[in-house]
Structure formats: C-alpha cells, structure tokens
C-alpha cells in the first residue's frame, strides 16, 4: 500500500432520490490523521454523503476507496469491520439497553463471531472492560448502568461517539455531533472532539462554525449536492463563492 494514498478517496459519488440529485459527483480525499469538516446549508447532501461512505446508502455512481481498497460495493457491516465508524445525525442507540451494554455491543461486533449460546455476554470481561474504558473516555463513566433511552440528549450524543470509538475505527464519520445541545453539553462535546482530533481521522459534518473553525484541518463546503470548495480554514474563509453561498448568511466571518 503506497503511503501517499489518502485513507479515504471518493470519486464522482452520485446519489439520486427520484429527480433530486442529493450528491452530485463528489470528489473528496481524506488523509490519515486529519479532520475534515463538511459544511453546507440544510439539504446540501451532507448526511447523504456520510450514508454512502458508511455503506448505508448505495451510490448510483462513483467509487469509494478506503485504506487502499475499493469498498463501494461493501455493505455497512463489512465497512465497519474494515475500520469505518459513523455516528448518526438523529441519535441512534439501543434505547432499552444500558449505556454500558450499548458500547459492549460495539466491542462485541469486533470481537469474533457471535454464534455463542452459552456464556452471558454482559458478564464477559473481554467485552465489558473495553466498553467501560470507552465510556470513561467520552465522559459517561458514571452513567454506565443507566438505560440509554433515559439519558439526557447530550449524553446520548456522547454515547453515539462512544459506540463508534469502541469499534476501534480508522475513520470516524460524525454527523452533527453537537447539534441540538445546550451550551454546557456542547462545550463538553467540543472538548471531547478536540481530544479525538489528531488521534483519529475524522470526517465531521457540522453546522456550528465556531466548532468547525476550532477543529477542522480542512473544510469541504457542500451546496446542492456538490463540493463547491475544499481547503484549509483560511482558504475557505477567504473564498468569495463560499461567503456568498453559505457563510454570508450564517456567520459574518
């Protein structure tokens, strides 16, 4: 595997919903270790892009290479096994299970097959201990035994991240992890993301520009299914088209 190859290489990714082209020929590279923020107005196609990267949505055209392998045809579980992990914009957890169970499941998915019918999974130390450590890492250690559906919104968002981390991913796809959070919660989340940054390769979809400026190594701007600009934060700040299409209406930079 040539070291120069980016960890993720997306070429010509097209996804249509009926007449609507949700992603319209997206090209994108993500280098190992960097944090790429994807920004854009509502309906720009950010979540659709993440869905195609994670394998939840089959693209209509284009290709996705991950770690030197073409994964375009692989379903989501197989991509997870190769080191792609995602969080969902709309919280997606196992609501009836405890926080610890949620994370232990993510560990279990990557600890051999689950055709095991005898030993209670929720007492398997090989699953529980990494799960607990991951919960600690995202700041949910004290909430391990709380039923996930009863956690506060912000805590559920942290749990999403914990589940993604517990799969020991090479690439984290985070879809608006800070959205809908109160000030305190969002501060805690940003602190967590800052900690993950650099240690993991991250594609971060985010609306809050303060968060983006704080975390992104590079920024891709999506509008109507296309990436209209991609570059360093400085370059994006200076880009006239971006200011007109997006930033102008959100933040006076």
């Amino acid at each position: 595997m040539p070291t120069a190859e980016p960890l993720l290489a997306v070429r010509g990714l097209i996804k249509r919903f009926g007449g609507l082209v949700a992603t319209d020929g997206i090209d994108l590279d993500v280098a190992e270790g960097e944090t790429l923020a994807v920004i854009g107005p509502n309906g720009a196609g950010k979540t659709t892009l993440i869905g195609q990267l994670s394998g939840d949505l089959p693209p209509d055209a284009g290709s996705i290479r991950f770690a030197g392998v073409d994964v375009t045809a692989l379903p989501a579980p197989a991509r997870s096994q190769r080191g792609l992990a995602r969080s969902f914009q709309i919280t997606s957890i196992f609501r009836e299970f405890t926080a610890l169970d949620n994370v232990a499941l993510a560990v279990q998915a990557h600890a051999g097959h689950s055709f095991r019918f005898w030993t209670p999974a929720f007492t398997e130390r090989a699953l529980r201990e990494p799960a607990r450590a991951t919960l600690e890492r995202v700041g949910l250690g004290a909430r391990a035994d709380v039923v996930a559906g009863t956690l506060a919104h912000g805590e559920q968002r942290q749990l999403e991240i914990a589940m993604a981390l517990a799969t020991r991913p090479r690439l984290l796809l985070l879809d608006e992890p800070v959205a809908g959070m109160g000030a305190d919660e969002s501060q805690r989340m940003v602190r967590l993301l800052r900690e993950l940054r650099g240690r993991h390769t991250i594609v971060l979809v985010e609306h809050d520009m303060d968060v983006v400026w704080a975390l992104a190594d590079r920024i891709a701007v999506m509008v109507y299914g296309r990436v209209i600009a991609c570059g360093t934060p400085e370059a994006i700040r200076a880009n006239a088209e971006v200011r007109r299409a997006y930033l102008g209406e959100e933040v006076p930079a």
Binding site: P77, S80, F94, A106, A166
Partner: peptide, 12 residues
C-alpha cells in the same frame, strides 16, 4: 431494538 445501528457497528 435498532437494526441500522447494529449494521453500523459491524454486525451482519
């Protein structure tokens, strides 16, 4: 409980 989540964390 949540099939898409199962697939996303790597279960077929």
């Amino acid at each position: 409980s949540n099939e898409p989540r199962m697939r996303a964390i790597g279960f077929s």
